[in-house]
Amino acid sequence: MTEPATAAAPAPAADTGARAIFEADGIVKRFGGIQAVDGATMSVGEASITALIGPNGAGKTTFFNLITGFYRPDGGRAVFAGREVQGRPPYMIARLGMVRTFQITKALSAMPVIDNMMLAAPNQPGERLRNVIFRPAASIRREREVREQALELLEVFNLAKLADQYAGTLSGGQRKLLELARALMTRPRFLLLDEPMAGINPTLGRRLLDHMQRLRAEDGVTFLFIEHDMEVVMNHADRVIVMAEGKVIADGEPHEVRADERVIDAYLGGAKVTPPGADGEGASE
């Protein structure tokens, strides 16, 4: 059932030096007659910051949807921390510590910012009905802890003073930050960010990147992010994976990828180097 990796597939991530925390092997997805993701194969080193780039329609967001359970792959394997995740429902994958954000932000508008954050915290016994009824104290205790963590994180992203506002009243950039902060509340091991920088101002963007670096250094969190801003990719990612037409066409350190003929062809063949935030693919949700 697994389609063999194509010739274009790069060598696995042995050259990063780090152990791979995530590996995808020959992931395939067809929509009608179109091969949206066509045997994508990659591996992501533990505690790395890896960028996923590629021209519009390369299948990057679809790939995210496939490995996080939002779409079911037609073929291929995805392994996270030693467990197969392809075909599992999204909530299970998220509970394993592999958490994603969305290209179009999904702030829960009619809930206060603080509730958005507290929702994401794991291990809340009060999310199960029988604990709500029989062990209310445990739930309340956990709520207190979680609220503190949430406020700390909001502080980092300059959102603390908006904690009690409805998320719907936030600006686009603030929502983007909220979604990221919310994903961090889950204490992820592997964070998949779909265009995290799009629509937020450069100062906050820098803050966000600093925070990513710190989480990687202190907690060993791994990042895989889709990004169109080449400056961000070249300066902040330690590894870059390039997709085009549903396949991984290059994989390496930023300076290697930048010099790669196939990458240049893919971008030129795809007509233009796309500006950030204009990715039209996979928006069918």
């Binding site: 394993l96 794991p122 291990n123």
Partner: peptide, 24 residues
């Protein structure tokens, strides 16, 4: 950081099992 392996195995309520059945 052991945060990653949260409740993957132990939290399988009846509802979840039913949901997985419907899925298959």
């Amino acid at each position: 950081m052991e945060a990653g392996t949260l409740g993957a195995g132990q939290e399988r309520s009846l509802g979840e099992r039913l949901a997985n059945l419907v899925n298959s």
